[in-house]
């Protein structure tokens, strides 16, 4: 229980911040310099995983260690959904957060990792409140929207965040005797439904992820209720990564100030090209429900 609380606490420290995907120590340093509150170390960013196809796995621990040595901010890394051994390996190299991620190929098509068995914290993706609750029940200390990674298209992240928020509002306004039925419908523990009913929010921090490419995208997600933002391909697939990274960091702080958003959106060069949801054959958000 103490571990669970401390792990949720680290996510609280990341709030109002941007977590950036990086593939090399140099990129990690750029991200840190630009004001990232954490980095996600991985061998290939989602856009390249899409392009390469095939099975995508946990990154080489040596590569992750190189990034841990390059920066002082927290370092996260991804393991495959349900891949207990990959998670154990990441814990063994003293990672700060594990992302049990649909961006990688799932290792288990039924079960997620029992995250309560680990000391290290986990963040998991969710498309709706039911998924978020199930991941929290399994021990996730942080939730993010799934969005559609590697597309530069924010539509899925918006859809997932809006749905979660509206489901939270619905539970908040229910009468207490309706909560049991809601827990049954969502296939989740009653206690979590009750927590949301009483507090109007998830018991863990909730970030946006999957398709954020511009400062405006980041501000949009914050206005919809995200407590911070993951940016994967959006930064290092763009023309001027450092400038874009700085702008997105600022956009998360000033998400409610259109004047500042206008200033920082100027002259950023080309954003990542992006692909529409209709153009992609692989929907990563469908992995692990």
């Amino acid at each position: 229980m103490a571990r669970e609380e401390i792990n949720r606490n680290l996510a609280q420290m990341l709030k109002g911040g941007v977590i950036m995907d990086v593939t090399t120590p140099e990129q990690a340093k750029i991200a840190e310099r630009a004001g990232a509150c954490a980095v996600m170390a991985l061998e290939r960013i989602p856009a390249d995983i899409r392009a390469a196809g095939g099975v995508s796995r946990m990154s080489d621990p040596k590569m992750i260690k190189g990034i841990q040595q390059a920066v002082t901010i927290p370092v996260m890394a991804k393991c495959r959904i349900g891949h207990i051994a990959e998670a154990q390996i990441l814990q063994a190299i003293d990672i700060d957060y594990i992302d049990e991620s649909e961006v990688l190929s799932p290792a288990d098509d039924v079960y997620h990792i029992d995250k309560t068995k680990f000391d290290v914290p986990f963040v998991c993706g969710a498309r709706d409140l039911g998924e978020a609750f199930r991941r929290i029940a399994e021990g996730a200390s942080m939730i993010r929207t799934k969005g559609e990674p590697g597309t530069g298209d924010v539509v899925q992240a918006v859809k997932h965040m809006r749905l979660m928020m509206s489901q939270i509002r619905k539970i908040t306004s229910m009468s207490e005797d309706e909560l049991y039925e809601e827990a049954k419908n969502l296939r989740v523990p009653y206690d979590l439904v009750k927590y949301v009913h009483e507090n109007g929010k998830l018991p863990v921090v909730n970030f946006a992820a999957g398709g954020v490419a511009t400062p405006a995208d980041a501000a949009l997600m914050m206005q919809l209720g995200a407590e911070g933002v993951f940016v994967g391909s959006g930064i290092f697939k763009s023309d001027d990564p450092e400038k874009r990274a700085r702008a997105i960091v600022k956009a998360v702080t000033h998400y409610n100030d259109p004047k500042i958003l206008a200033e920082i959106s100027e002259d950023l060069g080309e954003a990542m090209v992006g692909i529409n949801e209709q153009e992609i054959s692989l929907l990563m958000a469908e992995r692990g429900k």
Binding site: M13, L14, K15, G16, G17, E32, R33, A34, G35, A36, C37, A38, T72, I73, P74, V249, K250, T253
Partner: peptide
Amino acid sequence: GESTAQGKL
């Protein structure tokens, strides 16, 4: 929070 991020801002 993160001091590097806050210090930069």
